[in-house]
């Protein structure tokens, strides 16, 4: 049984008793706080292979747990629970249920590549984080993160036309994530942006939203990329099974039914 660094002192694994006597010894109260024995029976022996099958996860097997990734991590510096080394460990152990606990954290990697630069084993932890975030979404453990939605909005435009238009990316992203464009800081930013801009420049920006920038004769490249995506998707379905759509948990019943 592997020794695990976090779960032993989680609040739900701790029990306190107001009135407990064991072998004639009173062990009530906080001083006799017990940690429940944990039995791990849900190893997913395929977990590392599943992550490795996703784009970016290929080199996870190289990791020897030095911790350089977590040590250099931008997000770890502002949130100590963001721990790439630990997640790579869980994946390599097949500790699926533990990994899933952090499902709403892993997507927050900002791709600064400090980990990939520091890694002595070329694991490419940055890409492993992305693969893991996609795996969690694919398995239906969590809904698509705002980061994934942004990637999709952006990539769809690139594949469709060869180029993107900033304004359209922002609008589509806010639209798909249900965010309002009327946030005070955004309004302030636009105000400062158009202040001092010559009319010619404003006209140019306006025209860009109507006549979208595109690469000429992009059609064949678009088709080639789309074919490739389709092939890869079919391969993934074969290896990992089809995507499971995320279902939000049922709200807890307001009344507890009588036994």
């Amino acid at each position: 049984m592997p020794i695990h660094e976090k779960n032993l002192i989680r609040p739900e694994n701790i029990s306190t008793h107001d009135n407990l006597v064991m072998d004639g010894v009173d062990v009530s109260g906080d001083w006799s706080t017990f940690i429940k024995t944990r039995v791990v029976a849900d190893y997913n022996e395929e977990l590392q292979d599943e992550i490795a099958a996703l784009p970016g996860g290929e080199y996870i097997h190289r990791c020897w747990q030095c911790g350089s990734c977590t040590n250099s991590c931008t997000i770890n510096a502002i949130n100590p629970d963001f721990n790439p080394r630990y997640w790579i460990y869980l994946i390599r152990m097949g500790f699926e249920s533990e990994l899933v606990r952090d499902k709403d954290l892993i997507w927050q990697c900002v791709s600064c590549n400090k980990c990939t630069s520091a890694c002595p084993r070329d694991v490419v932890p940055e890409a492993v984080m992305k693969a893991t975030a996609h795996w969690l979404e694919r398995k239906g453990y969590t809904k698509k993160s705002s980061s994934t939605v942004f990637d999709e909005v952006f990539s769809e435009q690139v594949i469709e036309r060869g180029k993107i238009e900033d304004g359209e990316v922002v609008m589509s992203f806010f639209n798909r994530t249900g965010q309002k464009l009327t946030q005070p800081w955004l309004i302030e930013m636009v105000k400062r942006m158009i202040k001092g801009l010559p009319v010619q420049m404003l006209t140019m920006m306006g025209l860009a939203t109507v006549f979208k920038p595109k690469t000429r004769n992009w059609g064949p490249a678009r088709d080639a990329i789309n074919d490739y995506i389709e092939e890869q998707e079919a391969l993934l379905d074969e290896k990992l099974g089809p995507s499971v759509p995320y279902k939000a948990p049922e709200p807890a019943p307001t009344q507890i039914p009588a036994e």
């Binding site: 784009p55 890409a127 996609h134 980061s147 994934t148 990539s155 060869g162 690469t215 992009w218 490739y228």
Partner: peptide, 21 residues
Amino acid sequence: NWNCCGAMEVKNIDPKIQTYL
């Protein structure tokens, strides 16, 4: 007639598409 390099987004769909771009 250049195209987008994929920025920091397309690689998350598949790094090899980004390499192609």
